[in-house]
């Protein structure tokens, strides 16, 4: 177990190293330098800027410098916003993104398990078909269609919620709904199919034969086993939530990480792009790591020491 965790951690470090190197060299491959687009900068100041950001050093030195800073969690200064470090930007933005993300995950799991359960218990009846349809729609309709739709109907037309911003509790409702739509649909499909499998398992017959009450059978025996595949979805779900949050923060005007990410790309703020990319990657890898570990704990049949899986 310990060996497995260490192995995974080592693997994660290698991946982060590869990604960090890749981002560094990709950004360096862009022709010109970040300050050339600024208008009316005298050559002397250009030179000073280049020197201050270490752009005159040989590539190898810059790379080592960058890697060294990375180890100390120093992602450098933003190139477009003055006197702001990338780490500061991540700190301010992450609070909002984290809140919305966690709410969305909770809503997605709750709604997904509930709908999946309803569908499985009404197998081949109306509610089942309805849930399947809803789930396929959820997987197919992208967040940048769902979010403007919610915004238009509930924000502009019905005026139930504020169109944008994140000032009080009700402002969370629309972004969280839009963000949890896709993962909820996915979880509903997962729970439905695994529930159908579990319901026909032999131990369900045993439980029923023992005369246990319907609710105990459903919750203790069926749902507990049917929920297992959801654990494997934690990793991909985090990825979905992050991609979704980039879109949703932009649409609902929330000053989270996603909004900074979009802005950094449109402004070509290279240090910020690099920093945010690495940050996202680390979060995703941690989520996958947790998935692997968690699965070993909830499902004793999985032996972590064995390779593959």
């Amino acid at each position: 177990m310990v060996r497995y965790i260490l192995q995974k951690l080592l693997f994660m470090l290698v991946s982060i190293f590869v990604l960090a190197s890749a981002t560094f060299f990709l950004m360096k491959a862009i022709p010109g330098n970040p300050f050339q687009s600024e208008k009316n900068i005298p050559p002397a100041i250009q030179e000073r800027l280049n020197e201050a950001y270490g752009l005159n050093d040989p590539l190898g030195v810059q790379y080592l410098h960058y890697m060294n800073n990375l180890i100390h969690f120093d992602l450098g200064m933003s190139m477009k916003q003055q006197y702001v470090t990338v780490v500061d930007i991540i700190k301010t933005g992450f609070i909002y993104s984290l809140q919305i993300g966690i709410f969305a995950i909770i809503v997605a799991i709750a709604a997904g398990v509930l709908f999946g359960l309803i569908a499985a218990l009404n197998h081949r009846k109306f509610l089942d078909g309805f849930t399947i349809l809803l789930a396929v729609l959820g997987v197919s309709i992208p967040s940048f269609v769902v979010a403007p739709f919610l915004q238009y109907v509930f924000g502009v037309k019905l005026r139930w919620f504020d169109v944008a911003g994140l000032n009080d509790v009700t402002d969370f409702i629309m972004p969280v709904l839009a963000l949890s739509f896709l993962p909820a649909a996915f979880i509903a499909r997962l729970v439905r199919s695994s529930m159908l499998e579990v319901l026909s398992a032999d131990y369900m017959k045993t439980a029923r034969a023992k005369g246990l009450s319907g609710r105990v059978i459903l919750v203790r025996h069926a749902l507990r086993n049917a929920i297992l595949p959801v654990v494997t979805y934690i990793g991909p779900m985090t990825a979905n939530i992050i991609t979704g949050s980039v879109v949703i923060e932009q649409i609902f005007g929330i000053g989270g990480l996603g909004k900074f990410f979009v802005n950094s790309i449109t402004n070509r703020d290279y240090t910020l792009i690099m920093g945010l990319t690495l940050f996202y990657a680390i979060i995703l890898m941690l989520a996958r790591f947790l998935t692997d570990i968690a699965y070993g704990f909830v499902d004793p049949r999985i032996k972590l020491t064995r390779k593959g899986g």
């Binding site: 693997f11 991946s15 950004m27 862009i30 790309i265 792009i273 990319t277």
Partner: peptide, 19 residues
């Protein structure tokens, strides 16, 4: 493959298109 896969693909795609 595992290393490539462990890096979120959309991030790589974004970086490549920026370049």
């Amino acid at each position: 493959c595992e290393i490539l896969y462990s890096i979120p693909s959309l991030l790589i795609v974004i970086l490549l298109i920026v370049v």
